[in-house]
Design a protein around this nucleic acid. Structure first.
Lengths: 359, 359
DNA sequence: CTGAAAGCGCTTACAG
DNA sequence: CTGAAAGCGCTTACAG
């Protein structure tokens, strides 16, 4: 039943050589340290018949590398509510695929960690993952205040942050250049002829950096075209005491009327579309709509909603490459990579020909 | 920068004792092997000032246990489409929470593995996770034909399967008793007075076991109440050449009319509700609807949809407990645990008072 | 080309 | 109560 697992020693005995030799041929060190073809054969043969699988713990301990990389993000909400993190989940598959494709090609294995929320019990010591099992970590952290990541970085583990870096500490990171991307988007709308572009901001309690950057991009595009920004067109959605409907109504009643609308949060896009149409405004004839952030339901609305999509597959791949380089020590300073948005052209706004193709 | 990590040896030197002693007090072996309070203090003190963290690789190698358990399921689709696995994703958070709550209480760490699809390249050797890093594995596998799990079980690693066991090999498993649960549900409908209960089956290419069991449960409930089953009321949804609409139409036009409808697949529930209402049938006045499987959108439909919910939080917890017992060798034979469904009562069907409360 | 040996950082009987 | 020592299963200079 629980028969002892075959070790290097077993293989060595079977092949009539030393474990040093077995280790060498099984690890392809045979390039730097030459080995006779015949012994190589014997070793492979022995390993095969004995179903040898190296013990990764021992290997990791001796070689100081596990060939495993980690990826951490919150998969569960503090209240165990299934829908809490759905926004994250929706694109998680793409992100993981992007990462794993790269890792697999490099012989790396991916372990995923659920970063626990401690909101329920802030006094509890933060659960930590054992960093010994991994050579590096990709860290996805929507909450910039979460303290654990900084510890990980300081511990000297190669890390790549997905998103804006909220820390003092320099660290590799991959994210979109929200300023530039929004500027491009708004510029394209202006090139198409729009002069009155409403912008429904996704401001919750505190404005996160990326939203501020987008807002600046919105303004920069106007400045580029020498159009004065009407700040009344930038409406904060979901302010404490202002319901969404009021924000939308205010935006729609502003004169001269807006001809284009940017919706900054995917979750409210369908609702907003409904409110617009209830107000007797035709989309896209009277008003073109672009959502900043894509959702699988946007192709099913009436009309379907055009959206800026974050290319999670590519983001994941870039992060994985960056991490692998960091693990190999091939990159010294903290680098940050910017992945452009993609435009999902649907019925609510045709814009492709006005967008500059990325260089 | 890359300063050497502090090891047991460092702590021992600092505390003026041997590494044996340090190991003992830090691992609370002090119950079986007594240690003076004063040396205990010195050791703790030294460990604290040196920020000692045990190397888990070394510990794992020496102790033959890593205090880490794994959980594996497909998070990515073969085509990297974000929406492919959304059904899984939707409840993943609950499942993970259930597992992790239990693990955490036992000092176990959870590593999550994305089981890769090999549909894209079936010739590629299956990517395998290194079993050396984990003491046990919870395996979630929607595809009963996937061969890898059997290897894992044979390798002697303690395993718990989430779902039906498709293998010959006996293995611990946690799932719902689909036969009994469906029987209870239909019995409740019958107790409420329904005699004509439509059942839209979720049959894709091949009928999976759980759907067959549910169908038997449906029939058993009728038998219990001495009602003849009208097999025309059991419609296969989404058969190759029969569109959903036709199945629904056929179901609704069957005489005498159905007064209750079971929808077997969450994905089509909203569509079916729409078709029913287009046909001029009022829900729930003319027709009560229950979906087998819950979805976060069901509370937003008009009327909101009642549903049987799989209790993923509890399923996860049961699986974790079972795995922990298996790791400890406290459970010998393959046990399978059945977790009951829960009823989410909403507007489309009031049924709570007719359901037997679980004993 | 191959082997003997030290070492990775721990745990755990076994002595004392 | 504490220590010396063997061992977990590997890797990797260092000899030969």
């Amino acid at each position: 039943m629980a028969r002892r697992r075959t070790t290097l020693k077993d293989v060595a005995r079977e092949a009539g050589v030393t474990i040093s030799t077995v280790s060498r041929v099984l690890n392809n060190k045979t390039l730097t340290v030459p080995v006779t073809d015949s012994t190589k054969e014997r070793v492979f043969e022995a390993a095969r018949t004995l179903h040898y699988m190296p013990n990764r713990l021992a290997r990791g301990l001796a070689a100081a590398t596990t060939q495993v990389a980690g990826m951490s993000f919150p998969m569960t909400s503090p209240l165990n509510r299934a829908d809490h993190r759905d926004v994250t989940f929706l694109n998680l598959g793409m992100l993981i695929s992007g990462v794993q494709n790269v890792f697999q090609a490099s012989g790396y294995e991916l372990h995923i960690f659920n970063r626990l929320e401690h909101d329920l019990n802030p006094d509890a010591p933060p659960r930590r993952m054992s960093l010994d099992f991994i050579d590096g970590l990709i860290y996805v952290e929507p909450n910039p205040k979460y303290p654990y990541f900084e510890e990980v970085v300081k511990a000297g583990l190669p890390c790549v942050l997905l998103g804006e870096n909220p820390m003092e500490h320099p660290v590799h990171s991959v994210c979109a250049d929200d300023f530039e991307e929004m500027r491009q988007l708004v510029s394209a709308l202006i090139r198409k002829g729009h002069r009155r572009i409403g912008y429904l901001l996704a401001l919750l309690n505190e404005p996160p950096m990326d939203v501020l950057k987008r807002m600046e991009g919105y303004c920069a595009a106007h400045r580029d075209a020498e159009i004065d920004v009407d700040y009344e067109l930038i409406r904060r959605e979901h302010v404490a005491d202002v319901p969404l409907r009021d924000s939308v109504t205010a935006l729609l009643s502003r004169e001269p009327s807006i001809t284009a609308l940017l919706i900054g949060r995917t979750e409210v896009a369908v609702d907003v579309l409904g409110m617009v149409q209830e107000a007797g405004i035709r989309v896209p004839e009277d008003l073109e709509i672009v959502v900043v952030g894509d959702d699988r339901f946007f192709s099913a609305t009436q009309p379907s909603l055009s959206a800026m999509r974050f290319d999670y597959l590519r983001i994941g791949a870039e992060a994985a490459h960056l991490l692998l380089n960091a693990v190999r020590g091939e990159v010294d300073e903290a680098t940050s990579i910017s992945v452009p948005w993609g435009f999902m052209e649907r019925e609510s706004c045709r814009l492709k020909e006005f967008l500059r193709t990325p260089s």
